[in-house]
Amino acid sequence: MILFENISKSFFDGKKQVQAVDDFNLRIRPGEFVCIVGASGCGKSTLLNMVAGFNKPSSGQILLNGEPVTGIDPRCGMIFQSYALFPWKTVLGNVEFGLKMQGIPRQQRQEIAGKYIDMVGLTSFADSYPCELSGGMRQRVTIARALANNPEILLMDEPFAALDAMTRQVLQEELLRIVDESNKTTLFITHSIDEAILLADRIVIMSARPGRVKDDLRINLPRPRHVTDQLATEYLDLKASIWSSVEEEVRQNMLFNA
């Protein structure tokens, strides 16, 4: 469970104060898959970084399963948009990294890592270096690396935004399968409404900066879901209603930054 209690965060960039997040409140239940959608610059990454402990809130606190986040927290598995794979480690070396940090013996951790590499379909690339992989394959490795460490919570910051449309669909499909299996609490940031509807149990729409919760929608589409479900009328209706909510914020954001 993730609990945001009156979270505010401001940055001081040289001369002026930037209020990135203002009085953000949210309760995410165990096992829930929550997508945060919002205009760019509204503070989504800032929120995620605070959950992972990379940044401290200016005020308020974040509780993970009742315990406050006080530093960089391995209970959260972070999946970065730019992969952040270790270029000097092979796929196996990357995936087993967290287990190595836990002090799990070599043989055992390679076994566990192998299972997750298999899960993302990269067994034949276990000994390849990240530079030898495509973007989609790299993001698979990142997902396997986070999962192998068995975190309580998955944090994903626009993980598929840098991928081409078709690779993105394949990965979305895989993520759906993985998430259905592992049932981990997941906080997923995206600026794609389609992606949010496809993946989420719940979509949180953020206001333009400073970010707050503007809308909080439950997505009751049945699971398992598939990329092809995006053609159903039910789905399109949802998309239209979410877009009308987001549009306002995007327009405001454009004026604001003009």
Binding site: M78, A84, Q102
Partner: peptide
Amino acid sequence: LLIKAAQNLGASRWAVLREVVLPG
């Protein structure tokens, strides 16, 4: 970002030095 990623995966200060800073 790689240092952050390592810390997120549970690396201690010393492990970050050995596993990330040195090879990086």
